[in-house]
């Protein structure tokens, strides 16, 4: 009887100490630090990317911190110095510049810290542990085909480019032009960078509209610029006659597609990429080493016909 009572007491003590933590859904004990370095937090899409990576790392039991590079490689480099000196176990990295960011990744590698690139690549295959990249080229081939379908085989259009040092800018532009340039009746009247920035997108398109008031469409290398372009067209009273095409799958653009105000975008699935990168970091910390260097992530075309399937930076459940 005594033995039975003792056993009951031990069981009760165990339940009292362990169960409340498990029931409350507390994260597991912190097992190291993961840094999330993002090119900019001045764009909701990148905020989602960074927050999702941080949240998944925290779910996996890590202390996770987001570092904002403010689209500046010098700031990015300083972030890396800080991270290397502070004993982080892994870095989830959204680079600012395909060439300019290589040195920072190489420094982290030399310090024994794995780097997992997300969304944007670096032009090196032996610095990062893995790079998870949206297939921007294929996504913009689909957008280019839809553009021709919507605008027709003749017309005038403007292209707003992203950051010129980023490969995504050119992969998107080349994918789009691989289709649209096959139609000689489609004339690009202006091609200008707006740095993936909403305010610059607005500013640049306003200036272009002064010289080219008769355009039929605007192709934007991301959704922030598409939002800026939309504002410029609304201000000019041309939002009903000019079709806007974006890229990213940002929530505000998906909503405007549903309202028939923006023609299409390419859904990039930032949450999927960010979660996977955090899981890769966890796997690395637990001993895995054989990661594919480049992992393409398919981009899906979002149009008024299928927009109901999309929202919250991905497909609806």
């Amino acid at each position: 009887m005594k033995k039975f009572l003792l056993l009951c007491l031990v069981l009760a003590a165990t339940l009292l100490t362990v169960a409340p933590r498990a029931l409350a859904g507390d994260p597991p004990a912190v097992q190291g630090k993961i840094a999330v370095v993002v090119s900019t937090l001045n764009n909701p899409w990148f905020v989602v990317l960074a927050d999702t990576a941080r949240a998944r790392a925290q779910e996996l039991g890590y202390a996770a911190t987001v570092f904002d590079s403010q689209n500046d490689t010098a700031k990015e480099s300083a972030n890396f110095e800080n991270i290397i000196a502070s004993g982080y176990a892994a870095i989830i990295f959204n680079p600012t510049d395909a060439n300019g960011s290589i040195a920072s990744v190489a420094k982290a590698k030399a310090a024994g810290i794995p780097v997992f690139c997300i969304d944007r690549e670096i032009n090196s295959t032996n610095a990062a542990t893995a790079q998870m990249l949206s297939d921007s080229y294929s996504g913009c081939v689909k957008l280019g085909e839809y553009f021709v379908d919507q605008v027709g085989e003749t017309g005038k259009y403007v292209e707003l480019l992203g950051l010129v040092g980023d490969n995504n800018t050119w992969n998107r532009s080349k994918g789009f032009h691989s289709v649209v340039d096959s139609y000689p009746g489609l004339k690009m009247v202006a091609q200008q960078s707006a740095d993936f920035d909403r305010a610059k997108g607005l500013e640049v398109l306003e200036a272009i509209l002064q010289k080219n008031p008769d355009i039929n469409a605007v192709f934007c290398g991301n959704d922030a610029m598409a939002m800026g372009a939309y504002q410029a067209l609304v201000a000019a009273g041309k939002d009903k006659q000019v079709k806007i095409f974006g890229f990213d799958g940002a929530d505000d653009v998906v909503k405007l597609i549903a309202e028939g105000k923006i023609a299409a975008t390419g859904m990039q699935f930032p949450k999927k990429m960010a979660r996977q990168a955090a899981e890769f970091a966890d796997e690395y910390i637990h001993g895995k080493r054989d990661f594919p260097q480049k992992i393409p992530v398919a981009v899906e075309l979002v149009t008024p016909d299928n927009v109901a399937k999309y929202g919250n930076y991905g497909r609806k459940p």
Binding site: Y137, V141, N167, N171, K174
Partner: peptide
């Protein structure tokens, strides 16, 4: 248009191309 010809056979690996622009 697109990458079907490049990718369907599995003979080429994106990881062999440091710059994805070249691959595209």
């Amino acid at each position: 248009f697109g990458n079907t010809v490049r990718d369907a056979t599995g003979l080429l690996d994106a990881s062999a191309f440091p710059n994805s622009q070249n691959f595209n």
